[in-house]
């Protein structure tokens, strides 16, 4: 049983990645910088995976920062006002984002792709405006407010504990996504994605499934948002920024749209590339390189980096014959 499990290269690769993720802090644990990069990387893996889950239902979003931020504000308000520990309020942040997500989804499910893109983008702008104007008495407006950290900073090695907590949440998220996609819901989503009219003909009502995808995606984006704020210890409305809507898209596309491993690989590769280029002192050129990478991947490798091995094998074969 065990041996057969590890004969599958994909499972083996996954096992190795997970093992490395658990062992890394033992080597770099004393280095605050590496740990910070890793923690942010994990948070963005959750966020990108959540965004990517929406594409499984054939939908897309240009404004996921709305959910990232709503989760963060939901959790932070609970933690800061009621004095609950951040680890408990995470869940509330996710649920809050999911509820709003489903409501937004209600307006979106009937829309074509580019309309959907616009509406989601617009919601992020509207929610940010609300948070800093009409809702300012509750949210603190532009000033934001301090939030208890995920692990109180007095504890020895708090950042490392934080890393492990977030790592476990990340793995749990991906396992859940995997299970969802294998389940009947996942099959229905695939059917809707491939051809909505045929799916309808087969007796699948797309609306609840699309809403479900919206809710789940918003939930995990919200969890990621609350984790980021619990890591920073301070929440401000910048969390609804356009760049935060774009990063999960860039990560997912680079890694491979519509695959489980895509957002994970994409986040790791792009973050490393980004921080590496930063360390080399490149400023604007860094953005240009990421932009060119994105364009090239969409044109030449539409299934992302995950499809690279298969693609190379295919090309090698073609050369041989």
């Amino acid at each position: 049983m065990n041996t057969s499990l590890f004969r599958d290269p994909l499972t083996l690769a996954t096992a190795i990645v997970v093992l490395i993720a658990f062992l890394i802090p033992l080597f770099v644990g004393s280095n605050l910088y590496y740990l910070t990069v890793l923690v942010l990387m994990l948070i963005f893996i959750i966020y990108a995976s959540a965004w990517n889950f929406l594409t499984f239902s054939g939908q897309g979003s240009l404004g996921h920062a709305a959910f990232f931020g709503l989760g963060a504000y939901g959790a932070s308000l609970m933690a800061a006002r009621l004095g609950l520990p951040s680890i408990l309020t995470l869940l509330f942040g996710g649920i809050f984002a999911a509820v709003i997500g489903v409501l937004i989804g209600l307006t979106c499910v009937r829309l074509r792709e580019w309309f959907l893109a616009m509406v989601t983008f617009g919601f992020a702008v509207i929610i940010q405006t609300l948070v800093v104007s009409q809702l300012a008495p509750v949210t603190g407006g532009w000033d934001g407010f301090p939030v208890p950290k995920l692990v109180p900073s007095g504890i020895q090695g708090s950042l490392m504990i934080e890393y492990y907590i977030i790592l476990i949440i990340t793995i749990a998220t991906i396992i859940l996504f995997r299970w969802l996609l294998k389940s009947r819901i996942g099959l229905a989503l695939a059917a809707i994605r491939e051809n909505e009219i045929e799916a309808r003909a087969a007796g699948i009502n797309p609306v609840p499934f699309k809403l479900f995808a919206f809710g789940v995606s918003a939930f995990f984006a919200g969890i990621a948002g609350s984790l980021e704020i619990a890591h920073f210890g301070y929440v401000t409305p910048e969390i609804f920024g356009i760049d935060l809507s774009f990063w999960p898209i860039i990560y997912s596309i680079t890694g491979g749209l519509g695959t489980l491993a895509g957002p994970v690989i994409g986040t790791i590769v792009v973050t490393l590339l980004w921080d590496g280029l930063n360390a080399m002192g490149l400023t604007y050129a860094r953005f240009i390189i990421i932009g060119v990478l994105l364009v090239l991947i969409i044109i030449f490798l539409p299934k992302g980096l995950v499809s690279l091995p298969a693609e190379i094998r295919k090309r090698m074969k073609r050369k041989d014959t």
Binding site: Y33, L35, T36, V37, L40, G233, T236
Partner: peptide, 27 residues
Amino acid sequence: MKAVSKLITQDNVDLLVGGYSSAVVSA
């Protein structure tokens, strides 16, 4: 966050100077 943690552990600076946007500093 990344820049500051890099300066602190990677470069082992003795002191920090700068910081502009309130939101960035608060994080």
